[in-house]
Amino acid sequence: MIRNKGSWWDRFRGARPSRGGKPRGGAARPTPTGHVNAPTPVFRVGGGFHRRAMRRAWRQFHEGSLSHWITVMVIALALTIYGAFALLLSNANTAMEGWRVDNTVTIFLKKQEDGKQAERVKKRLEDVAGIGSPVVSSPEQGMGRLKELLGTEAGVLDGLEENPLPYAVEFQLLEPDPAKAAALTSGIAQWREVEAVSFDRQWADRLAAVVTVVRYAGMALSALLLSAVALIISNTIKLTILARREEVEVMRFMGATNSFIKIPFIYEGVLQGVLGSFLALGLTSGLFLGARQVALELGRAFGLSLPMHFLPPLELGLMMGLGIGLGFLGSMISLSRFLEV
């Protein structure tokens, strides 16, 4: 804007101030920086700009230490709650995938039904859509499997005078939709020959429904928490802006651009988000290790296998992104409300 000829500086350098306003004078000579005829610098948004902005952001963060660290802790806690939900849901999903593989349905016929009746039921099942490979299981076969299942405890069955088990027909349920599968098995349960229907997948489907509810509840809770975090970050940045309003005013009159003034505040918010995310990552890892230990001990006690896995990389990236995004959002809210440049 104002053209800087660059010449008076050299004359000034050779003209040390003296009393009476009579400078001693001196010939113009180039400055060691080579700025003699340099034009008024044009602000460039380059590496130097962002390095300075980051340095100022760090300085602002450091100077407002306690409030900033409290904000970092709040971000970390909110993201940890999000991470805990993600961990729970991710492991529940994996467990359910395993359970869903077992789509075997067993129908137990009434005690008076014989093998011929069982074969008729089998043929009838073959005509029903969504059902695959029905197999008849005699009471003897059923007893054999029961003994196998009881293992060393199978001796308790030796006291029975007669085999109490009825004929059974097993088949694979091909229907993937839980509601349709439930309707199908309920319909079969109404058949005259059928005493009971055993379908393990129903439990998996019920669990899946519960997990879905937990998922939505987790999403709603996380959304509420994360919104609160954005407002907390915004408040911290507001305090920084208010604490630095004199500096901002001075910079404005020196010719600072909007970017020069605003970007350090944005970096400051993002820095809080990044630190909060890393802390949340550590806390979530701690939770995972604790939960895995509990699962191992439970598994050992009940003879179950409860494998657990940590969050997949995509989920971890999302967590970090959320932290950074919240920092950015909080800064932008404050800047738009409290910093007019």
Partner: peptide
């Protein structure tokens, strides 16, 4: 003021 005078003498 001497300082300002020197600056002026230098061309500002």
């Amino acid at each position: 003021f001497d300082l300002f005078t020197a600056l002026h003498q230098s061309g500002a």
